[in-house]
Design a protein around this nucleic acid. Structure first.
Lengths: 237, 237
DNA sequence: CGCAACGTTGATTTGCATCAACCGTTGTGG
DNA sequence: CCACAACGGTTGATGCAAATCAACGTTGCG
């Protein structure tokens, strides 16, 4: 079922995996020995852009992104996809399946050529119970994700697409620490993330540009011209 | 800031708190000594129906419901409220604030006369790092909540109010293990939980009744007459 | 009893999805 | 190397689900 290609040489492979494991924030506080133990029961695979890391219905181990970005999404009955989040290097996914022993109900696909390592479910459960720092770190991450998801729920019921969009643009600017930045994903994916369609997103972006709040350049470039206007649109009224 | 009334007699108070702590699933695996330690740094308060356990903007400890139900909600800019979840005895809230040391952005109010105990943030963090079973249990709960929240996000963008309602009714029937049951909350709250308005909910319920899928009785009673019809409405089409 | 919150129904408006056509870019196979 | 398919993106026209506004009935509580 799982796609991707295994590494070649076994010895070099373990070194590589060990180095990867060592870079994962989740395992930052662990001893070298612990990290070796984790690396042993991990499998690292490469995925080409567009290749699926996993699909709904599979039973999964914990996955950690080492290189590239991985898009996690859900398939709606209508056939369209709902983007849940995009993960970068060092971030994990599949924790729900590991923790509750259920099948996953979402998909993960590589946005770039990527490298993802999966850690055996039992091993990670053992680590969680033996190394509280790992459990607490994971708990912090998951609870932040929960918080974000609940924000999103409120946003979807209480705010317009334009408000959500404006808020998201401000967030992107904050992350980039600049008023000029590139959208990190296609507009299609952004629309899906904001819970709307590509058409509506396009219209809302144009509207923001006409109002003078932002300027759209080629290649997904965005410049926030009037932060006040944008923010007043994002806030309540 | 915090409302509610403290217990009287200190000795009896500790016994009471200890008994309460012992009943909490989260602490099930702990030793008696550990539970005493937790009970010591806890404060149990009673809340009348309608009284707030906490409000947005406060810095919080971990709260555990001992008796009654507590409604957690968010206030939208429009002034209306978005119900996040309803907690019963043994369930906890406020974990995000504890874990990320942030202020809470939501409210909690007692739905019945309730008893809620709050455990000092530092103490619970200490327990989490010293007793992995607690961290793993909490992790399971939080990740289930995350999963539910992400389901909700998909639901809000991809399904109609009637579909969400039908699915929820089936879930309630499943929980009650009967095709006849009472709505656990006011229709106002149910509407808020489903991300819609009281008016729309009322109309959708009537529509389901007209279609013969359900029957509405007095006092929030609901009977599922035709599960097939209801389920076909809830599923894709 | 009387007030307040809950609940229902009707009329109206609207934001957004949907359907459809079209353009520019990318990439691919003949 | 060109043709053409495939995809991302934009714009326009149309339909509809659900919010909103408003009025009224109902329940429950001090």
């Amino acid at each position: 079922m799982t796609s991707g290609r295994l590494y070649g040489d076994a010895a070099h492979d373990h070194d590589h995996r060990f180095r990867c494991v060592s870079l994962v924030p989740l395992f930052a506080a662990l001893s070298e020995k612990d990290r070796h133990r984790i690396a042993e029961s991990s499998v690292t695979r490469r995925y080409e852009r567009g290749e699926h890391v996993f699909r709904a219905g599979e039973r999964l181990d914990l996955h950690i992104v080492h290189r590239g970005r991985v898009k996690v999404y859900r398939l709606l009955e209508s056939g369209s996809e709902q983007l849940i989040r995009i993960l970068g290097a060092g971030e994990f996914l599949g924790e729900t399946a590991v923790l509750s022993e259920t099948e996953v109900d979402h998909f993960a696909v590589a946005l770039d050529d990527a490298e993802v390592c999966s850690i055996d479910r039992r091993r990670i459960l053992a680590v969680l119970t033996e190394r509280p720092s790992v459990a607490v770190t994971m708990l912090q991450t998951v609870s932040q994700r929960l918080s974000a998801a609940e924000q999103m729920v409120s946003s979807l019921t209480g705010r317009s697409v334009e408000q959500r969009l404006a808020e998201h643009l401000l967030q992107l600017a904050y992350d980039a620490d600049s008023l000029r930045f590139r959208l990190p994903s296609s507009k299609k994916d952004l629309a899906s993330y904001l819970g709307t369609t590509a058409e509506t997103l396009s219209r809302r972006l144009s509207a923001l540009q006409k109002s003078g709040a932002i300027r759209l350049g080629p290649g997904r470039f965005v410049e926030i011209c009037d932060e006040q206007v944008l923010r007043s649109g994002a806030d309540a009224d």
